[in-house]
Design a protein around this nucleic acid. Structure first.
Lengths: 217, 217
DNA sequence: CTGGATCCCTCACGATACTG
DNA sequence: CAGTATCGTGAGGGATCCAG
């Protein structure tokens, strides 16, 4: 529990002593979506050993980044949730995610998408108010390699939910080629043409989607 | 050299594979000030083992975060400098530094200030255009536990230099109590009164300094 | 079934010494 | 000055086991 110190009086080194250990920021990323149980976290971080997850949760709780809370009602369930201090990392995580996306190469065979990382990526790539003047809400259901999330764009605000979207304007189904669309390496039309993306709904909406969510130029 | 992967297709996990290893972001922080030689980096990172520094430099170069450059002229010197991609981390480092500063406790006996961390902290705490309407430049020389840097505020722009300032408007000399002033735990007047800060020049300027550089509320 | 604790192995890190 | 070599230690990885 005693932290290995960097031996400097510096906000950055302090930050790294708190969240710089392996897996820590990914745990925080998943909790940024909402409170989660131990097992949920385990599933979202497929390769994490349980002892490391356990240790990280204790350390992060000790530093005031997250809280352990015992749900009273339905069953004795333990959830972990970020404190306000932990939630302050949101913008930093989004920015780091954008930075790292630029280096994303072709994925390994056993690399996977998770719902949390996908939701994070969509929040990171959301182009605020740059979207075309469509005041009415637009909803998408996004399926990437079987992982399903819902997206709602309304009044320039982005809503992200886990699981299927109810009555989406457009269903987007894709695989590992999704990154190419998000980074603009291929256009919406090209993606439809080469079959790396399938849609259900108005195909024109995919262009709007590609403009709304973009990482890079 | 083969990176331990997090097994996820996610910009954040990619970023952490690149700069998430111990010491990496501190190396980048020091290079953010300017190109440096191996020995300079060693001095700014007092506890880093040389083999780890060597390994990090190789990895970061391999990922396009920094470049190794051989100075041709005066002597055969090797310097490391950030690439544009590496420099994109600047805002993230500043934000992380601000976040971590909120958790800075009383320092250990052997914790030190370094010029680079201090310059970083001043950049992170600089309150952009919030400063009072003083269009003329103000220059400070800041000495914290013997570490000396220069600060120049002009047209709402902050300049930070290593070493003494020439003809500063105010010389601020202080020790480990400097963090209390920066975070606003004590006021400029209190700091002068209890002797934790000494100034040479107009003491009133210390209030302006405390307003110009501030972390937290 | 959740929420971990425990064991063992490996490798990265940490400290120090040494070299072109 | 700019690293490389060596070696001990402890954190991370993986599997299994256990209590509520």
């Amino acid at each position: 529990m005693a932290r290995r110190s960097y031996g400097q009086i510096c906000g950055l080194s302090r930050a790294l002593e708190i969240v710089g250990e392996r897996w820590a920021l990914l745990i925080i990323r998943d909790l940024m979506i909402g409170p989660k149980r131990f097992t949920d976290l385990r599933q979202g971080l497929p390769r994490i050993p349980t002892n490391v997850l356990s240790a990280r949760l204790k350390e992060l709780e000790h530093h005031g980044v997250l809280q352990r809370r015992i749900l009273p009602r339905p069953a004795t369930a333990v959830v972990y949730e970020l404190t306000p201090y932990g939630r302050e990392l949101d913008d930093i995580l989004l920015a780091l995610g954008r930075w790292g996306s630029q280096s994303l190469g072709p994925p390994d065979a056993d690399d996977i998408y998770t719902a949390d990382s996908l939701m994070m990526a969509m929040r990171a790539s959301y182009q605020g108010g740059c979207s075309s003047a469509a005041p009415e809400p637009v909803t998408y259901e996004l399926r990437v390699t079987g992982v399903v999330i819902g997206l709602t764009v309304q009044d320039g605000q982005l809503g992200v939910t886990d699981g299927p979207q109810s009555e989406p304007d457009l269903v987007i189904e894709t695989g590992h080629g999704f990154a190419a669309l998000l980074t603009g390496r291929i256009s919406a039309a090209e993606a439809l043409e080469n079959g790396s993306v399938h849609v259900t709904g108005d195909p024109e909406l995919l262009s709007e989607f590609a403009n709304t969510f973009r990482i890079g130029p």
